[in-house]
């Protein structure tokens, strides 16, 4: 459930204010999780064209990768569905060290 009592940290309110400031905004959303996942389905990470971000889709494990994908999505305008899980070689680079598996939908605002 979304908590609205900490407005400054609410990604969707931040996305709206960034949009009103004329910034290009991408929204990443956790749409599916399996096993142990640090952030529940529905969690958001919002990213602007300079790579500034707020919110989270994991415990910091895959944010870097989501942000770089978001840059491409901002350019192309085409949404992407990303999948992250533990892969042996990449577990400590891009992947969830907790053993979980998540799908993240990345789209451009507007």
């Amino acid at each position: 459930m979304t908590q609205l009592n900490t407005n400054e940290l609410d990604p969707l309110l931040i996305a709206e204010s960034w949009m009103l400031d004329g910034r290009d905004v991408a929204i990443a959303t956790v749409v599916e999780t399996w096993g142990s996942a640090p952030r529940p389905v529905g969690s958001h990470l919002v990213i602007d064209e300079k790579g500034n971000f707020e919110g989270s889709v994991s415990g910091g494990c895959v944010e870097g990768s989501v942000i770089s994908e978001a840059m491409d999505v901002l350019t192309s305008g085409e949404p992407r569905l990303l999948e992250f899980g533990v892969a042996d070689e990449t577990a400590w680079q891009v992947g969830l060290s907790c053993g979980g598996h998540i799908k993240v939908y990345v789209e451009r605002l507007g």
Partner: peptide
């Protein structure tokens, strides 16, 4: 996401 949808939400 449609900006109008974000505002409405």
């Amino acid at each position: 996401m449609d900006p109008y949808c974000l505002k409405k939400l």
